[in-house]
Amino acid sequence: MKRHLISTGDLTRDDALLILDTAEELARVSQRSIKKLPTLRGRTVVNLFFEDSTRTRISFEAAAKRLSADVINFSAKGSSVSKGESLKDTALTLEAMGADAVVIRHSASGAPHRLASWVRGSVVNAGDGTHEHPTQALLDAFSIRRRLGRLEGLKIAIVGDVLHSRVARSNVLLLHTLGAEVTLVAPPTLLPVAVGTWPCQVSYDLDAVLPKSDVVMMLRVQLERMNAAYFPSAREYSRRYGLDRDRFARLHDDAIVMHPGPMNRGMEISAEVADSPRSTIVEQVANGVTVRMAVLYLLLGGSEPAIGGAE
């Protein structure tokens, strides 16, 4: 059966736990001097990036290479896409090159889903528009579990620009599956219309949510998407929804702070908070490689994928 990782909503609880447990074992490999495993020898992973993203692309590339897969990087800039080639034609080209997996980042929500019907290999969504970014959610869940030892029953606040955030949606779906209680905190203008149908709570008041949270996940204010007036000024946003020293002090002692990066220091998170030992921001990057190795292994390592949604 052909399976993909397009939405965290496709993952069952068992799938999600299998990914996290596999990543846990693979994390040990990252600590030894030879970090390479021969598992995906002879398999080809194509990184198809229509949108700039250095950290995600490098993370996927490192993950594939540590599993000995061949990696082909394809970025839209300077490629045939800039000459007007369609997604479908690009997909057929990749198909002809024999890609076993395609990792796709695209500005259009739903692009990975379309791609999945055109290629024979597994499709891994590395972020599509404002829709989803499943491996980010998986690495967030993994980072939380490593720090706090569990996910079940944790209270997790996701704060900021939920409207444009694929990270928020993927996290809400995944963390709900794994038994955590998620609260979205944002100004009403930065929440999607359909947020009422998401398996989470919604609040407009960060100060009320903070004291009872075990995890605070700050989202980046996507300045490049702020063409409409979603809030009066950056300063006002930062006052009401930024995580500064005073707010940080009101968290309980074991609570952790996360951010998917890149950060706007001084906007949604103060430098002091970002660099504190209770922030997981640097670990999240290292955990990203491990979790992506687990995903690639479980999709490509066997005769058929062990996780993911059928197309």
Binding site: D21, T22, R28, L299, S303
Partner: peptide
């Protein structure tokens, strides 16, 4: 030492969970 990632029969079955090293 877990040997799963080094097996030569990985592609005969779906990817399996890893053991502890």
């Amino acid at each position: 030492i877990d040997v799963t990632m080094y097996r030569d029969d990985l592609r005969l079955r779906p990817a399996r969970p890893l053991g502890r090293t």
